[in-house]
Amino acid sequence: MPGQQVSHADVTVVVPAFNEEARVATVVSGLRVAFGRVVVVDDGSSDRTTELARAAGASVVRHPANLGQGAALQTGFAFALTDPDMRYVVTFDSDGQHRVEDALALLATARESGVDVVLGSRFLTPDTAVPAVRRAVLRAGIAFTRATTRLDVTDTHNGLRVLNRHAVRQIDLTLSDMAHASQLLGLIAKHELTWTEAPVVIDYADESRRRGQSNVNALNIVFDLALERLRSAG
């Protein structure tokens, strides 16, 4: 029923945020309709992100400085693990590009299938309108990740995912920026976690596109992953 509170008491939603005062309250309020426990990791914001997230009903963990989205997610994972009743973590971006109904669908897939990780994919829906430049960047990331992890994924940099407690314990993100998404997939492969993908819709509003991943960021992702690979081999 619309407006009905469904707590999913065994779920923690982790929302990394940096200077998102314009959206974070709306994102948290939407999540709170479906989930009882939402934690916003304020990654060193200089605006009212923390204040507005708390007012909307989220717990907030704050970094004193901006460390990057990967670091924010790792902080959120550590926070979620402090709850002994937590069985699932949902990761959800703070810029309004994800839909709560998609998060609920991914969670249902996780519960029904029993896999460790359910990854959201914008490319499983044929009519998804992905901007041309973004599509090219994402496809390059997909090719790189498939080659390095051997995971046959269709979308490598989607912030909407569900991980069970076992998977959260195995994830240790050391790449702080956008490369963390590919690193996470590499850890899924390394620890032989079971996974599947499920379709999601991304809202490509003008501001989300402006703040989103650019071609330069894609090159940074490749560089960070290559550097991490060299460190692991050393």
Rank of each mutant, 00 (worst) to 15 (best):
T91G: 03
F92S: 01
F92D: 00
S94N: 04
G96R: 05
Q97E: 13
Q97C: 15
V100L: 08
V100F: 11
D102K: 06
D102P: 10
A103K: 06
L106I: 11
T109E: 14
G114C: 12
V115Q: 09
V115N: 07
D116E: 03
L119I: 11
L119V: 04
G120C: 05
R122D: 00
L124G: 00
T128E: 13
A129C: 07
V130H: 10
P131W: 09
V137C: 13
R139M: 11
F144W: 12
T145E: 07
R146P: 07
A147I: 10
R150W: 03
D152F: 03
V153G: 03
D155K: 00
T156D: 09
N158P: 01
R161H: 07
R161N: 12
V162Q: 04
R165H: 10
Q170E: 15
L173E: 02
S176F: 02
A179N: 06
A181L: 14
S182F: 07
L185P: 08
G186E: 00
L187V: 07
I188P: 02
I188K: 01
I188F: 04
A189M: 02
K190I: 02
T194I: 04
T194R: 09
T194L: 04
W195P: 00
A198H: 13
A198K: 04
D203T: 14
S208G: 14
G212S: 14
Q213C: 13
N215P: 10
